[in-house]
Design a protein around this nucleic acid. Structure first.
Lengths: 292, 292
DNA sequence: CCCTGCCATAAGTTTTGCTAATGCCAAAGC
DNA sequence: GCTTTGGCATTAGCAAAACTTATGGCAGGG
């Protein structure tokens, strides 16, 4: 005689597989392997005594039972999520935002007071730890990702592209001729790097040793301290240039293959606070690029 | 960053603990140890970030958070249980009834056609396997228990008490003087036994060897075949006596400490089929004891 | 015909859930 | 006031469940 309900994990997996019509897509969504999804769906179907999906080549299709069950599961989840959030104090208007540290410190933090003024009831939690590039940062409602274009597995839109160029302290003595003898800093694992910047304007690049860090913050701090040059782009450096803490010693700006993307989790679209934040950041970046 | 929902098992445990206001009671209900309940509640409270219960000496009390959460969890469970039942084809009017095999064969089965005629839309599943005497047989909506009075941990009511006496085949040669030299059969682990029957009427009992089985069915079958005598009572033997397959060779009937009880699981009371069955069996047994 | 994408399965590993045992606390009983 | 009792909390260990890795099978696409 069985428990009147299957494990909740199976239902969560079912919902994701139904949403994606794909075990592989559900696996990405849930940060597990396709095999685990397959096994859980099999277990749930065994428990229910009938299939929930027709397996088609390269496609899933919900069965009648699956079509019947899905809204029930979603409704129960909504009830539980809302109830759980009410208990944890995690209101709908608390939004988890994931972005890299340089963006959060140099771009977002200075603008948060403006956001708060506009949306006093929306609470942001900003997560900036380095994370595995997955479909969506785990637990985040909204992610601002600086990368090559992500796969369209969650709702993804281009926020802005940018150009990159070296920056240094205002009184730092450097010329194109002496550049490659200076201490140079960069952020790792990017196509927008020193060599590509040089190539973009036809400079001979002698592959000088670069100091890499996993965040631009390190190089920018060194540059502001007069310790060398760092690559940068407007999104993270504009304010520092405006404040006179950095200068761009050379005129050339190379187009970046990386760009800033806004990623919205499925549940973000049902969360007013997340929607408000997404709309705000779209507007803010559009205004920045097309000043009135 | 966590999953937006805790494991369902924790919620089920929370609901049971809230219903009983006891971890020990919830443990009995859920067929797990008090320790497991305690750990799951602790995990759920950690997950939610606040307590759900105030621990008082010998009592639990729901916190504000617990009071808020309980209806949410119950509502979600109802949604899921109904949805799951719809998918599995397990309709509300399927009722799991647990009772011992002798009762089911000798009392219930002959009466099922009458029940079906009255309630054509209610489907009974009868479970008769030997089971651990728990608060409620696992998975059963309704249990008919033949035992000493159970603890009032689920809704329990006396269906009928009875008297016990020996039975044998009609032509079986036996007297009180020769009784103790006959093959004697009984059902194990009962206070209503040969020695107590003898004592009840002042017989000297020489502790003859008794053959025990875990069900009266064995002894009754032997008795009908002329192989000896078995203890019995009206609930399981009346029809056999009426049909002339058995006789009661002695007039003495001893009152049984055991009786038949009707146990209703918490969810049975919300299941129309279970309610219908319970009402029917109450009426049937009352009619049997007080024929018009 | 070969490659690709996706589901299914088996085997093995890791994690989780549970039990058993015991400790602690306060109420109840004597 | 002391002992017993009932019930929750915790630890340690074990078994079951959940997951990953690896691989097979199938059908569509090139």
């Amino acid at each position: 005689m069985r428990n009147p309900l299957p494990p909740l994990g199976w239902l969560r997996t079912f919902e994701a597989a139904a949403r994606h019509l794909s075990f592989t897509g559900a696996a990405r969504d849930l940060n597990m392997t396709q095999s685990a999804v397959s096994q859980q769906i099999k277990s749930l179907e065994g428990y229910l005594g009938q299939p929930l999906f027709h397996r088609r080549p390269r496609a899933l299709e919900l069965t009648e039972a699956g079509i019947t069950y899905l809204p029930v599961v979603r409704e129960a989840f909504r009830t539980l999520v809302r109830g759980t959030q009410a208990v944890t104090g995690q209101q709908e208007n608390t939004v988890q935002v994931q972005c890299n540290i340089t963006f959060s410190v140099n771009w977002l933090a200075p603008r948060l007071p403006a956001f708060r003024a506009l949306h006093p009831d929306v609470h942001l939690n900003i997560f900036t730890e380095l994370w595995e590039p997955r479909e969506m940062a785990e637990g985040a409602a909204v992610e601002i990702r600086y990368s090559l274009r992500p796969a369209d597995t969650v709702r993804t839109e281009l926020l802005r592209s940018d150009h990159y160029y070296p920056v240094c302290a205002p009184d730092y003595p450097v010329t194109l001729e002496t550049l490659q003898q200076q201490p140079l800093y960069d952020c790792s694992n990017l196509l927008s790097n020193w060599a590509s910047w040089a190539e973009d304007q036809g400079l001979t690049w002698d592959n000088p040793q670069i100091t890499y860090a996993t965040t631009y913050m390190v190089g920018l701090s060194v540059a502001m301290a007069g310790g060398g040059l760092c690559l940068a782009h407007d999104t993270i450096a504009r304010r520092l240039l405006d404040e006179g803490r950095l200068i761009a010693p050379f005129a050339h700006r190379a187009p970046m293959p990386e760009a800033y993307y806004l990623l919205l989790s499925p549940q973000a679209e049902e969360t007013p606070g997340a929607v408000a934040f997404a709309n705000w950041i779209r507007a803010e970046i559009a205004a920045e690029q097309n000043p009135a």
